[in-house]
Design a protein around this nucleic acid. Sequence first.
DNA 1: AATGAATGAGTTTTCATTCAT
DNA 2: GATGAATGAAAACTCATTCAT
Lengths: 228, 228, 228, 228
Amino acid sequence: MRTAAKAKPKKIIKKTLSGAPDMRSRRSEQTQQQILAAAEVEFAEKGLAGARVDVIAEESGLNKQMIYYYYGSKEDLYLAVLERAYTAMRQSERELNLVDIEPLDAIRKLVEFKFDYYAQNPRTIRLLAAENMQNAEFLTKSTRLREMHASLIDVLQAILKAGEKKKLIRAGVDPVQLYFSIAALSYFSFSNAPTLSAVFGRDLSNSHELKKRRAHAVEIVLDHIRVR
Amino acid sequence: MRTAAKAKPKKIIKKTLSGAPDMRSRRSEQTQQQILAAAEVEFAEKGLAGARVDVIAEESGLNKQMIYYYYGSKEDLYLAVLERAYTAMRQSERELNLVDIEPLDAIRKLVEFKFDYYAQNPRTIRLLAAENMQNAEFLTKSTRLREMHASLIDVLQAILKAGEKKKLIRAGVDPVQLYFSIAALSYFSFSNAPTLSAVFGRDLSNSHELKKRRAHAVEIVLDHIRVR
Amino acid sequence: MRTAAKAKPKKIIKKTLSGAPDMRSRRSEQTQQQILAAAEVEFAEKGLAGARVDVIAEESGLNKQMIYYYYGSKEDLYLAVLERAYTAMRQSERELNLVDIEPLDAIRKLVEFKFDYYAQNPRTIRLLAAENMQNAEFLTKSTRLREMHASLIDVLQAILKAGEKKKLIRAGVDPVQLYFSIAALSYFSFSNAPTLSAVFGRDLSNSHELKKRRAHAVEIVLDHIRVR
Amino acid sequence: MRTAAKAKPKKIIKKTLSGAPDMRSRRSEQTQQQILAAAEVEFAEKGLAGARVDVIAEESGLNKQMIYYYYGSKEDLYLAVLERAYTAMRQSERELNLVDIEPLDAIRKLVEFKFDYYAQNPRTIRLLAAENMQNAEFLTKSTRLREMHASLIDVLQAILKAGEKKKLIRAGVDPVQLYFSIAALSYFSFSNAPTLSAVFGRDLSNSHELKKRRAHAVEIVLDHIRVR
DNA sequence: AATGAATGAGTTTTCATTCAT
DNA sequence: GATGAATGAAAACTCATTCAT
């Protein structure tokens, strides 16, 4: 309906929260994973508007209706994909152990981790890009995601402090700004590879180029924080 | 024809190249500008797939057929928009005069310019992001754009050399890597503002935040190239 | 979208209000009438839920998209049909001239008019029945219709008063109740003809039966108001 | 199969006729009643086309397959609901004892009974309305229902005769016409309450209005048959 | 008897594009 | 040059029904 607000009939959606161990239906859980996997590929490739529900159904090897059965709508499926990718990234960050390492090495490791994560999860890059194109409409909508603040900030803070104490890192470095810069230097190499490659006329995504880029990112960050 | 692969029948398109002074029709020229302006807004906001020809027509104050008359198809219109934005950016870069400035100041100015350009041209950011989502399909397709290689690389090269000679800038800085990093640090602040704002729960696009971000970008770059 | 309220992009609908004499497009006006005519048949036959947009398009000889172009949605088209039928009925009532007739004859004429109107406009009966099944959701929604109160009540009132004065009609007859009863006796014969016919095993819609029914309706009403 | 004409493959349906005391499965009987109850609500609310099997399953607390197990199809379930409601109404009529009452009181009681039955069984009204929208397709199809002719006609006939003999009721009253009118006056008040309420801008379903309406129905009927 | 999962065939709606004037 | 009207092809979404357990 267009003209008037109408009490939408509540649609019954069968999504089993992945946390709940629903023993009765390991099959159902698997089906949902198949859908999510296919959807991630499609959304990462084409964005929300460009993605096709038919394609997702086709690629998942399932019926189109299953998508609506489990996720309710294209947009809700997109949100599920986004949540999963985002959660996985935060989880990876959380598993990064930087505490017992020399401060400068920790920073180096952190930059390399960020860079490598994007290198290994190109779809996450594209989902983030798509989401930014949408002004983070869905990320904002998701309570789950909004609350998942970047845990690395605290870690960074701790490392910087430890480094200061050891006279390895200069005082006064803003951890948030630093985090942004690390993210920027990692993200950009992948997010903008297509246009950069086109303009520079050479492939920027081969491993040689990436290695140089990664090393540069590490250096530029370290140069900024090191005491002279 | 909507999604399918197309064997474009050559269609006569009336686009007057803006270079050629077609005196007969200043009105025509204006019509095309109206379309381009509305299209830029729409494509920047929604991307290629999400943009609606109806909306562009509506917003331009013209009718849909005019779009097809002048631009042939939605995709060709998108290309025209992209070309214009890209050309304008390159033109701005070309107008930047960094030759007669002290090397470190020149770098500072360059970083600030990049940052400010994105700040003042948010639609360019979004068009670039959209184009990257499309794997630079259109940028690649456009001979005009492909040939418009980033002139700043040469300028950067010259500045670095001059700086080295004056013992202000350390030797061995790769101008391409540096250019990428400058672009990254500028671009990212704007391209990813929506998701960052959502996750950090505060508005990163106000002028205070941007000023801090800009200063940080300048510093991180300078710290990298300065001799110690 | 299911999950969240979303700012529906305003859809451009080209419906020319039938009042506005849009000379440029008599063709457009005719197209809309074709759609309305086909829609009335379909909605009257199957109700809102049962009606098929495809069928309406097919029967109107037009493209399905035209329906959306002019009316925006199936529901809005239904509303347009309802409004037209309702307006026509009220208009007919308004054209009934009962003022200069003997009171009892006026009542008789009124009952016959109601009965005949339903007899001649079976689709109006069905649209009303459909609308009642929907708890008058659309009639309530339509400002235009809600304001179109039954003008016959006032006329009835006047007739009753005149009849009282002439000692032809007894005092104390409630015009609203009487109007309802007249409507009931007319409407029911048509609205419930299918089930009654099925149960009584004979066709109640032939002209002989209708004549008897009509005469009975007149008598029962007159018997109620006549002075003894 | 949804809309298409169907060559129903004979399907084994487990419906235990409510008459047969199938001791083995009181549970089964209860399940069927749950389904019927939920179905009646849904069909009465939305009609055949508008009703959703999912909703019926949900509301009955059972699952969809049970509906198909016991009733074979949505349409057959609708028929079962219709049959039950109709049978109940006829049963009520049969239990009405009007034989030993004064003729005019009997008529009064009959009108009141009809009115009250509809008042207390609003879903029956809606099922009848739905069925009439379908041109009584299902009622016609059901041998059981077709044979269940309105028993009140005979009763009415007897009352009228008795009244005539006692000079209380005038001769020549057609019992079928009278029955129709009684039904009309009762039914209409409920069937058309939504549209009437909308147009008259006041609630016609409160008890005060209904009392007035009921009294009026009684009077108009009595006025018609009474000797003067 | 009962359940959750899956399906195919619709159904409404959207959208780029073209036609006629 | 410009406009409103029209179209076909696809897109999202729905729903009765069946399958497998």
